[in-house]
Amino acid sequence: MTASENSLSRAPAALREEPGGGLAVAVWATLKRDLLLMLRRRSEVLNPLVFFALVITLFPIGISPDPALLAAIAPGLLWVAALLAALLSLDSLFRADYDDGSLEQLLLTPQPLALLALAKVAVHWLLTGLPLALMAPVLGIMLSLPAGSYAVLAISLALGSASLSLIGAIGAALTVGLSRGGVLLSLLVLPLYIPVLIFGAGAVQAAILGDGVLAHLAILGALLALALSLAPLAIAASLRISING
């Protein structure tokens, strides 16, 4: 038995079904498994959304219910609150898999870990970033966000939160082996979130002022392209460190 066959036989059942199936099968199996797991734990999907709504509720109470004032700061508030909600959900990204050992199985598969990790991040974005983006316009109404910027808010959040998930997954992978990684994770990841926040909130602001928003969205897209190409490698390297440590 060769080394690769040996490691293949230790892979989870879903990945072993077609020994010759290769990468596409493995990525699809990881996607399906993670989606299924997340949909069975619905509260984990709903919690970031409730958190988002709660934080947005705090601002009018803490600052002022004056619609004019709220409208002026709404783009930034919505973006920051969504960013924090996405951040809070990151800690659980690899946690359960780390605890029950399936992360180790993932490392043992012959497929590149970077792409399997990318599949996990894609599920995270699909069930956290995308719902947050869809929910943001509703909260925008409550903050009297000026008309005409709602679509841009949702699009910028959908684009930006994909970068947030990718960058955040690096931090989650680095801290998954630590028993109290939660606060540390935010410390590592928040500084790296700043460019996304600048251009995301900038897009909404530009839409309110009637400037062109395409430039902002294009830069958000460029950041996503960069994160998409480099972050999986860093996530894979970090997961290896956390497992071996």
Binding site: I170, G177, L187, L188, P191, A234, S238, I241, S242, G245
Partner: peptide, 25 residues
């Protein structure tokens, strides 16, 4: 962040490699 991450690991080798990855990112 780099200093805190290095301090958080019990094993020195993991701490070194994690801090290296974070510095490169």
């Amino acid at each position: 962040g780099v200093i805190a991450l290095r301090g958080a690991f019990a094993s020195r080798d993991s701490a070194s490699r994690a801090a290296s990855v974070l510095a490169m990112v």
